[in-house]
């Protein structure tokens, strides 16, 4: 097992190179509101990238580090969106409570669905996740009275956060909201990193590298995949909650197959074997899509073309290519 695990990139010790990358990523993220106007962006675009990047990283916990492909993760993202939105709309105007509710809703659904599908692998796993996603889509779509149906859930806004000594104005101040999202992002990314470094995370890598060998070592593969699926669903549901706060709106498209596909392409575009890959993928994808859709009504064609080009010519993703070059 040690040989298998040693080969896996994330298992290397936290050396100088890694610290440098980590420092660089955080400097870029912390200064984002200051540099993004210079490249033609705006603060809430940065927030959007951060939220979708977190979602893609959560999905990559499965794809890149457990080796199984879920093509239905928009379901848990969307449940996070609705969970947060419903609390803010009907129960109480509390941002943290909304996030927690979204996390629980998405996590619960992930736990249940995960238990049903752990025996499947490869393309069949992907297929079942796609199909299950539709349940939540149709519930959100048809339960008009609760969710607002096709038009989406309106009539809620994120609430300011009172820390006792200070009141965080995340409603009106885009900067403050960005840093609030970055704070949540940091916690989730930190927890994800810790899990991947723990024995449990190493076991997931072992399953990814060689499932049969892991099984021979006495690892309960099904249970590990179930847990990984659940954890990933919890993470992505938090991202969903942030998405609801960002838009002050929840609609069924946040549960739809198209978003699942977009999240997967973000992972691949950035590089699935690299922790920060999906974040970079999300940034590139969101900016490209923003640009394309402002230039042509047939943006879908060109977005599809991005998918095709990435698969045919850049299957390792941007960071995967970089890493390969630095190793060579």
């Amino acid at each position: 097992m040690s040989a298998t695990v040693m080969r896996a990139p994330a298992a290397q010790p936290l050396d100088r190179h890694r610290l440098l990358v980590l420092g660089l990523v955080w400097v870029i993220l912390l200064l984002c509101p200051f540099w993004i106007p210079f490249i033609g962006g705006y603060t809430s675009l940065g927030t959007r990238i951060l939220v979708l990047g977190l979602a893609a990283m959560s999905l990559n916990f499965l794809i890149g580090f457990t080796g199984i492909v879920s093509f239905g993760h928009a379901a848990y993202f969307g449940l996070g969106v609705y969970g947060c939105g419903l609390i803010l709309r009907y129960v109480t105007a509390s941002t943290p409570l909304g996030l927690v509710a979204g996390m629980l809703l998405g996590g619960l659904a992930g736990t249940i669905i995960g238990a049903l599908i752990t025996k499947r692998r490869g393309i069949y796993f992907a297929m079942v996740t796609i199909a299950f996603q539709q349940i939540f889509y149709f519930i959100a779509y048809k339960w008009n009275g609760l969710t607002g149906g096709f038009d989406g859930l309106r009539g809620f806004t994120r609430a300011n956060i009172n820390l006792g000594f200070a009141n965080l104005d995340i409603i009106k101040n885009d900067y403050v909201f960005y840093y609030f999202v970055l704070f949540v992002f940091a916690i989730v990314a930190g927890v994800m990193g810790l899990i991947l470094r723990s024995p449990f995370g190493r076991t997931l890598l072992a399953i990814r590298e060689n499932e049969r060998r892991a099984r021979f070592l006495g690892i309960n593969v099904e249970r590990h995949i179930w847990l990984a699926f659940t954890i990933s669903a919890i993470f992505i549901a938090i991202a969903g909650g942030l998405y609801a706060l960002l838009n002050n709106f929840a609609d069924p498209s946040s549960l739809y197959t198209d978003l699942s596909g977009e999240l997967v392409i973000m992972c691949v575009l950035g590089g699935i074997r690299v922790f920060w890959g999906p974040l970079l993928g999300a940034a590139v994808y969101v900016v490209l899509q923003d640009w394309i859709s402002s230039h042509t009504v047939n943006w879908m064609f060109f977005v599809g073309l991005i998918f095709v080009i990435v698969v045919m010519f850049f299957p390792r993703g941007l960071l995967g290519i970089l890493r390969r070059r630095s190793e060579a």
Partner: peptide, 27 residues
């Protein structure tokens, strides 16, 4: 060209093709 590779690639490829054909029909 992508037979034998990780299933993620065939999923993404046909997903992208779906977008392209749909938009081409619309166009």
């Amino acid at each position: 060209r992508i037979y034998g590779r990780d299933p993620i690639y065939s999923l993404l490829l046909t997903f992208g093709l779906a977008f392209m054909i749909q938009d081409a029909c619309r166009y």
